[in-house]
């Protein structure tokens, strides 16, 4: 017995070392980000508090760029609003004639405004921390966008904060399509630069040009259809002969994220119930 205790004491360093290495490997190889415990992510109370304070200080730094983006977006939206008013007037007239009811597909989405308090673009798996949580109506799997385009999807939610899987994370794949065309492919980050990603599995027969816009497909409940994602830069040779692989310049500037919109889908419970019934 004494020998055994002596043995453990003499080689205790090895046991401690193996214990810590195994512990960190368990964390490291827990690939699915939805299994991460909330206290081991940046949405935990202490970590989020630190980022709250630091974002209060650094939040002013990028305001000039963001303001410019907003002005530009505002201008396009205003133009769109004018066009839509015109269209609405026309449709109303038509409605009176046909006595038909227009469908309201966008009405089922609500937007929750949140501030980014921590953000990374330099790791292979990047995450964003927001200052809104369960108390503000956020739930896992909600889509996140900013004034320019898609940002990511909510992943871990605590009472007042949440962690978002950034688009710059290979765990997140987004179904996208060409604007004005229903053929879709899947967008994924290849880890090279924070401003570019790859659109995979676009069928070969689909025609595209450089500078065409890629938008969300609307096939998932996270994002409404037609939110801009990126612009085609060119094509790289696909692995498969029947599919094209395109290089995409992302419209969202992930290095200067500050205010984002979380998309809440009022019908999500219905859709999920219907989808689980199918399986």
């Amino acid at each position: 017995m004494r020998n055994l205790i002596n043995f453990f004491v003499r080689y205790s360093a090895w046991f401690v070392f193996v214990f810590y290495v195994v512990l960190s490997c368990i964390l490291l190889f827990q690939k699915n980000p939805y299994q991460h415990h909330v206290y081991l992510t940046s949405a935990g109370a202490v970590t989020a508090a630190v980022y709250d304070v630091s974002s209060n200080v650094t939040g002013y730094i990028n305001l000039r760029d963001i303001n410019e983006d907003l002005q530009r977006r505002n201008a396009t939206l205003e133009a769109e609003a004018v066009a839509l008013h015109h269209q609405v007037r026309q449709l109303r007239q038509q409605l009176l004639q046909d006595s038909l009811r227009g469908l309201d597909t966008l009405g089922r989405f609500d937007f929750i405004i949140a501030s980014v308090i921590n953000n990374s673009v330099i790791h292979p798996y990047n995450y964003i921390t927001l200052d809104k949580g369960r108390a503000d109506g956020l739930k896992p799997d909600m889509g996140v966008m900013d004034q320019n385009g898609v940002v990511g999807v909510v992943n871990v939610v605590s009472e007042r904060h949440s962690r978002v899987i950034s688009l710059l994370n290979p765990n997140f794949r987004l179904l996208c399509k060409l604007r004005g065309n229903d053929a879709f492919g899947s967008l994924v980050w290849d880890g090279k630069t924070p401003s570019e990603a790859i659109l995979e599995d676009l069928p070969k027969q689909v025609k595209f040009g450089e500078g065409d816009t890629i938008v969300t497909s609307g096939y998932s409940a996270m994002f409404p259809e037609g939110i801009p994602v990126g612009v085609i830069m060119g094509s790289t040779r696909g692995k498969d002969d029947n599919f094209n692989t395109l290089r995409i310049r992302l419209l969202t500037d992930f290095t200067t994220l500050s205010t984002v919109k979380v998309i809440s889908n009022r019908d999500i419970a219905d859709i999920q119930a219907a989808e689980t019934d199918l399986h």
């Binding site: 490997c25 490291l28 190889f29 940046s42 790791h123 995450y127």
Partner: peptide
Amino acid sequence: IFSNTQGMNAL
């Protein structure tokens, strides 16, 4: 925990 790197720095 702060940088969401899950065990990389710990190891």
